[in-house]
Simulated assay, not measured.
Amino acid sequence: MKVSVVGTTGYGGAELIRILHNHPEFEIESIHSTKDDLPIWQEYPHLYNIFDKKLEKPIPEKIAEHSNIVFLATPSGISGNLASEFIDMNIKIIDLSGDLRLPPKVYKEWYKLEPAIQALSEKAVYGLSEWNFEKIKKSSLIANPGCYPTATLLGLAPVVKAGIIDTASIIVDAKSGVSGAGRSLSRNTSFSETNENFKVYKVNEHQHTPEIEQQLGFWNSEMKPITFTTHLLPITRGILVTSYVQLLTEYTTTQLLELYQETYDSHPFIRVRPENNFPSVKEVAGSNYCDIGLKVDPRTGRLTIISVIDNLMKGAAGQAVQNANIMYGMKDNTGLDFTPLYP
């Protein structure tokens, strides 16, 4: 299958090239950016003599004529408009931005941008691969989940769906590496500001909050608003989410680990850690894995859930390719079955 990538000069676009360049079924037909006629290795020198295509301006009709699927790795506020141009063409679309994940009114409130048309957002399938497999398989338009929501939802899903927690008790403490902010220059993500530093940001107003709440509500109609707090880690890539939930009845860690292991047994990218073993971000770096660890506190009746992903992989490009695999009836891990980088 022929593939095009729009928004190739961002980190998500670069990861798509890294994955797709060695994918056994997908072949990169074209790469696109506002920087026209520039060899991609001049943006990313690590691709020199490996991948020599030049950037082209995105012309939807031309892309749809030559490719079977297009990945939109452009910023929020841009992807929705591009998707609307592709929607009536014979091409599958995977949008890595937030433009199609929420109803227009909610999107405008949280993203402070003009939303995509309602018909488009209603048609898009939320691409949380492990949980929306059947819908993804039948869809031609995927809203790829955000990085924080992916790590948070994969950690919370089994207990939320099982209805064994107080739905008003969820507190999510999330931390991300600096690449989650994208490649654009800003003072807050400069070396001097982030090195040897650790800070909270967007307190009670992060745009991924309604995305998480929306999916939790699909799983459990009794869901209440969550507390979601984000922090910036002085590392390049990786997300660690610690979620705290109140159990409705008494459970042991062993019992809940069995629930998680049963839930994710057939999903190759979810690794539920053994009891008293907890994941760190370095252990999933460069991979499409989500590692999950659990611990019940019998004193308080609360469950602590730790989930880690690489924000550029399972949180963006890796999950996008996983969704493309599903759309074409391939195994989830086709072209993605590589080990994490370590150390």
Rank of each mutant, 00 (worst) to 15 (best):
Y148W: 05
E196C: 03
T249A: 10
D332V: 14
G155T: 08
A64Q: 07
A124N: 02
S140I: 05
I136S: 05
Y126T: 11
G13V: 02
S33A: 15
E258Y: 01
K123T: 09
N68G: 15
T9I: 12
R183S: 15
K161I: 14
F269N: 12
L257C: 08
N90M: 01
K282D: 14
W131Y: 11
N22S: 15
D291K: 09
T236H: 12
V70Y: 05
L82E: 03
P268L: 04
Y328Q: 12
H267P: 00
L341C: 09
Y111F: 13
S186I: 07
Y11E: 07
E222D: 14
A73D: 04
I235T: 14
P225N: 09
S140E: 09
G155F: 02
G182V: 06
T230A: 11
S4P: 02
K199G: 11
F278W: 01
I165C: 01
P75F: 03
N132E: 15
Q322V: 10
M327L: 15
S140N: 15
W41F: 14
E211N: 15
N90P: 00
T34G: 11
T263P: 03
W219S: 01
G315A: 08
Y328C: 09
K175G: 00
G80R: 02
E250M: 04
H21Q: 12
D95Y: 06
E56Q: 13
W41N: 07
N323Y: 03
I239A: 04
I63G: 06
P104R: 07
P115W: 07
F278Y: 14
P279L: 07
G13C: 04
G7M: 06
Q319F: 00
I69R: 00
P145I: 09
P298W: 02
L96H: 11
M1Q: 09
A168F: 01
V272P: 00
L233G: 04
T34S: 13
F228N: 02
L128N: 04
P234C: 08
P343A: 07
P158G: 06
P39F: 01
G163K: 11
N204T: 12
E43A: 11
I31M: 08
S4D: 12
L102V: 06
I136W: 01
V200E: 10
S307Y: 00
Q322L: 13
A64G: 10
K161H: 10
A124Q: 03
K202L: 08
H231D: 00
G286M: 10
G182Y: 01
S140F: 05
N277S: 15
N288L: 01
D337I: 01
A317L: 05
V281M: 09
S139V: 04
E25D: 08
P158T: 07
I226P: 06
L240C: 08
L102T: 10
G286F: 07
N195A: 11
D37L: 13
F133N: 10
I50T: 08
T152D: 03
Q118E: 14
D291S: 10
H21M: 10
P234E: 05
E222Y: 05
Q207H: 12
G293T: 03
I309T: 13
T34N: 09
D52F: 00
K295R: 13
Y342L: 08
K54C: 10
D297P: 01
D99F: 04
I17L: 11
L312F: 05
S67G: 13
E25A: 06
N277D: 14
N188L: 12
L154R: 01
W219Y: 04
A143C: 05
G77D: 04
A316Y: 06
R183N: 11
S192V: 10
L257D: 03
A119F: 04
Y126W: 10
